[in-house]
Design a protein around this nucleic acid. Structure first.
Length: 671
RNA sequence: GCCCUCGUAGCUCAGCCGGCAGAGCAACCGCCUUGUAAGUGGUCGGUCGUCGGUUCGAUUCCGACCGAGGGCUCCA
């Protein structure tokens, strides 16, 4: 009785745990569409399509089929209608389609509750079934101002349109920087000029300022294909200095089936969650007594992390890097020179005063590596110099951004700094990028996306040098034939960078590697080398972290493999399972031989029966389970079971060793 | 940092409108000596996140704080 009840409880608890998260946009990655959608369309859509040519363009910008764009955008409006019916005083602001669904932000006196969501969703379904047409109307500026006279947010959008800032309805990548002027009477000529740009869409009782496109009628929407998932706060125009609005998220697809597929995908994501697996597999924990964002690695997790680092260290040494090691704190003057106290202070832990001098815990390793470089005179013959360190840094992150291992306050970087001449620079960047891809591939990642991040607002250095450096990075990307996207303003304060994002087993994207061009720190630290002509010359610098943060990388690795690590990284590689007590001695003998071959082995000599031991080893995702009983003992053999459930049957121990050891040594991704 | 939600045994969770806390798993002690995902009996285990308030009485209601989760903003 208890078994079936337990099973049901488990299902229920999983479902409950999932529900509040249905709409979460995954942390730093994009969810793939669970399946590509047919390009068919209703007749109503076809009509509208002729009108707004921009539909296709908008959909493309949002990286989704136009049909889905219309569907989700329309559901956002229907959501707003349902909310306004329940809370007439609510002020709708913006409501764009997003990947997998849509949201709408409202200014309301009281935040929405989960019960609200159920009611609103029910009302939305009724509206959808009401077969209401979506109609578009172009209005003059005056008319628009009149229509939305009660809504300061819409008025702000209208004034933005009038000012020619584009139709920012929450759908542009970049919100306009300047706050628009308050609505004021305008000369008649001006209003007329911009009037053609303003359109409103109406369905049933709801009219919204909107550029479209939408479905022709709500009958094109499947009432079983969408679901409201969560609420949250969101700043008006994403600006934390502006009003806090209340956002409702929904997911939406053409069919019930696709919605269900998506929900299943979320369940899969839930199962892979590194926080869950970190606990289940006893890898690490984050203890509130120690402090948020500070990771305690348990033996198994520490082993995986250590082996990953060891492998990378060997690769760095084999590729012309020298390993260095530097302190965790340094005097304030170091950080003044580097510029960190000017540009990075809000991310640094506060100063510690010792002997009337301020010391800071390091948020980055670079100044220390520079001090090593500067400890002696360097010749052009020494270059390039490549220093690497697994340096632990601390950055003060705002409480709300912390997330398991993926965003922490203390982490170890596989941090390297390359000092070279201007002439060596292009080749070094090329080499670094290739080296980075090699490292990532070694961990089983095959697909990458590259981003070229350009100069941020808060930065140091002349514009011309920024341009030059950015071009150098761009050329490397082109030479390596790596497709890339531009990340405007995403660079470090000292230089532009290439970020590599890896795609994991279920298509999610994670930022790990960063390769940064730096022409500023060498200046600030007055670095030099003696060139061929006997003159002092400034070296160029490349910063790179390939796995990035070991903490984050471990999190990504856990999710990528769903905790079933490749053999070379599995903390326990073989569990030996004696069937009865009389087989324990033989099991220990087998363990000894495997250990002699460099494998990590354990004998489960507990009192449970074999089935239970298999179950335990299986749920710990141990790659190999070797069952030994009378037959095996007599034959000097082992019965091999893989964690995949596959049974390799009985084989001589030597044969198992010949099978497993090469897989371990080759760091193969699968068993 | 901001908005919302949550915080009960090592883990997963029950505990309706306030009346001295419950299950399964795990752990521990036995019995069973087992053939590919849970054999069986018993025992132990909780100042119900912390601190205040309301109340005759608070795990339950209210407030503050701490922490977590989902977002916003920010990033390796």
């Amino acid at each position: 009785m208890s078994r079936s009840q337990l099973g049901w409880n488990r299902v229920r608890s999983r479902w409950k745990a999932l529900r509040p998260k249905l709409g979460r946009k995954a942390f730093c990655f994009r969810l793939p569409l669970s399946s590509p959608l047919p390009a068919g369309e209703g007749s109503g859509v076809r009509e509208l399509r002729a009108k707004d040519k921009r539909g296709e363009q908008m959909a493309k910008q949002h990286n989704m089929p136009e049909e889905l764009y219309r569907l989700r955008h329309s559901l956002a409006h229907i959501l707003a209608q349902a909310v306004l019916e329940r809370y007439p005083e609510a002020q709708p602001t913006i409501g764009p389609p997003v990947e997998n669904g849509f949201y709408y932000d409202f200014a309301v006196a009281k935040p929405f509750t989960p019960e609200d969501l159920e009611v609103i969703e029910g009302r939305m379904k009724a509206i959808v079934k009401g077969r209401h047409a979506f109609t578009c109307r172009e209005v003059t500026v005056e008319e628009a101002r009149g229509l939305f006279a009660h809504n300061p947010f819409k008025l702000e959008l209208i004034e933005g349109l009038v000012a020619g800032q584009g139709d920012d309805m929450g759908e542009e990548e970049e919100p306009p920087p300047a706050p628009p002027a308050p609505p004021a009477p305008r000369p008649p000529g001006e209003g007329g000029k911009s009037a053609s740009a303003i359109s409103v869409y109406t369905q049933d009782t709801f009219t919204d300022l909107c550029r479209g496109p939408h479905v022709g009628s709500t009958q094109e929407i499947n009432p079983e294909g969408f679901k409201l998932t969560s609420t949250s706060g969101a700043y008006w125009r994403g600006d934390e200095h502006k009003a806090m609005l209340q956002r409702i998220y929904g997911v939406a697809f053409k069919t019930r089936q696709e919605l269900d597929d998506y929900l299943r995908l979320l369940e899969e994501i839930e199962k892979r969650d590194h926080r869950r697996l970190g606990k289940d597999l006893d890898l690490f924990h984050i203890d509130s007594t120690v402090g948020p964002g500070l990771v305690l690695w348990h033996p198994k997790g520490a082993l995986i992390k250590q082996m990953s680092e060891d492998f990378c260290r060997q690769e760095h040494l084999a590729n012309g890097y020298q390993i260095v090691s530097t302190p965790h704190v340094g005097r304030a003057v170091l950080w003044e020179t580097s510029g960190h106290l000017d540009f990075y202070k809000e991310n640094m832990y506060s100063a510690m005063e010792m002997d009337s001098t301020d010391y800071y815990v390091k948020p980055m390793n670079c100044p220390f590596h520079i001090m090593i470089y500067n400890s002696t005179i360097r010749s052009y013959r020494d270059l390039p110099i490549r220093y690497a360190e697994w340096g632990t840094v601390y950055r003060f992150e705002r409480a709300g951004v912390l997330h398991g291992l993926l965003r922490v306050r203390g982490f170890t970087q596989d941090d390297a700094h390359i000092f070279c001449s201007a002439a060596q620079m292009p080749a070094e960047i090329d080499r670094t990028l290739k080296f980075g891809l090699h490292i990532l591939r070694s961990f089983g990642f095959e697909r990458f996306n590259a981003y070229l991040a350009t100069r941020p607002v808060k930065s140091v250095g002349e514009a011309a040098r920024w341009d030059e450096a950015t071009e150098a990075l761009r050329h490397t990307l082109e030479r390596c034939e790596l497709p890339y996207e531009l990340d405007e303003g995403g660079g470090a304060f000292y230089g532009p960078k290439i970020d590599l994002k890896i795609r994991d087993a279920i298509g999610r994207e994670w930022q790990c590697s960063t390769i940064q061009f730096d022409f500023n720190l060498s200046e600030r630290f007055d670095m030099s080398f003696i060139n061929e002509k006997g003159e002092r010359e400034r070296p160029y610098m490349i910063h790179h972290a390939l796995l990035g943060s070991m903490e984050r990388f471990m999190g990504v690795l856990i999710e990528h493999y769903a905790g079933a690590f490749p053999l070379w990284l599995a903390p326990l590689q073989v569990m030996i399972i004696p069937i009865a007590d009389r087989h324990v001695a033989y099991a220990n003998q087998v363990a000894g031989q495997l250990q002699a071959n460099g494998m990590r082995v354990q004998v489960d000599d507990g009192a449970e029966r074999m089935q239970n031991k298999i179950r335990k080893a299986q749920s710990q995702k141990v790659p190999y389970m070797l069952v030994v009983g009378d037959k095996e003992q007599a034959a000097g053999a082992v019965a091999v079971r893989l964690r995949t459930g596959e049974d390799l049957k009985t084989m001589p121990l030597e044969q198992f060793i010949a099978h497993a050891v090469p897989i371990m040594k080759s760091r193969a991704a699968s068993l």
